[in-house]
Design a protein around this nucleic acid. Structure first.
Length: 215
DNA sequence: ACATTAAGTGATT
DNA sequence: AATCACTTAATGT
């Protein structure tokens, strides 16, 4: 078990170079499996683990006062959750919900190790900083997208992101789900999807959207 | 065959 | 672009 975690870390997180760090992750970390659509972390929960994603993908979302959710971004293998870093520094409750997009595997590290590892392992510190940086950029893009882009662009972005996150050109989803993620109405999504289909960018079936392989 | 759920349409604001 | 009020199509029992 320890051995396999050790291998997984080397494989998916090659930037964590210190041998000792790899060993500690293998010793301390535990592997967790989540089924598709399983909630990993919900609003208000206290974060006790930092996840290192090995397989699958995770959707990170935010809920507003009326209970409407909006998708912020996807997490993919080789990534971690920046929100968990900040939450564990301050011991705050989670302000986001994370749900497994598909069957997902991750290594969970108890948060009490974050601090000491930051000091002891430069590559860990770097990893955390890089994660922050990446997510910050991502979120700026999300804000821009919501503030300035029209729905058709947001929808196209969404399809691309989802395709990348799931490593597949075939998306199993409904128009309603997409509408929820983008905080739009189902009818609007249906209409825009059909435009995209007319342009030859996608192919629609019930519960399925197939992206064309060309750009 | 029937019921349920996803998707399409047109009108209204 | 949202909402409503349908209609039509696909699928499960």
């Amino acid at each position: 078990m320890e051995d396999s975690i050790f291998q997984l870390v080397k494989q998916h997180f090659p930037q964590l170079v210190e041998k000792q760090l790899q060993e500690e992750i293998a010793k301390i970390g535990k592997i967790y499996f989540f089924k598709a659509d399983e909630t990993i972390m919900d609003f208000g929960q206290y974060i006790k683990l930092v996840p290192l994603l090995i397989k699958g993908s995770i959707r990170v979302m935010r809920e507003n006062e009326e209970g409407k959710e909006i998708l912020l971004y996807f997490l993919k293998p080789g990534e971690s959750c920046s929100m968990s870093f900040s939450c564990c520094l301050t011991y705050k409750q989670s302000i986001i919900r994370t749900v497994a997009e598909e069957d997902t595997t991750l290594i969970g590290i108890p948060i009490q190790y974050m601090d000491q590892w930051m000091g002891r392992f430069p590559s860990w510190k770097n990893f955390v900083m890089m994660s922050y940086d990446k997510r910050m950029l991502e979120l700026v893009n999300v804000v821009e997208s919501i503030a300035f882009h029209q729905m058709d662009q947001r929808l196209w972005d969404y399809l691309q992101k989802k395709s990348i996150a799931t490593q597949s050109l075939l998306l199993n989803t409904t128009h309603q789900e997409i509408a929820n993620d983008l905080n739009a109405s189902r009818e609007a999504i249906s209409r825009l999807l059909k435009q995209l289909e007319k342009m030859g960018k996608i192919k629609l079936k019930r519960n399925q959207i197939r992206l064309s392989d060309n750009e």
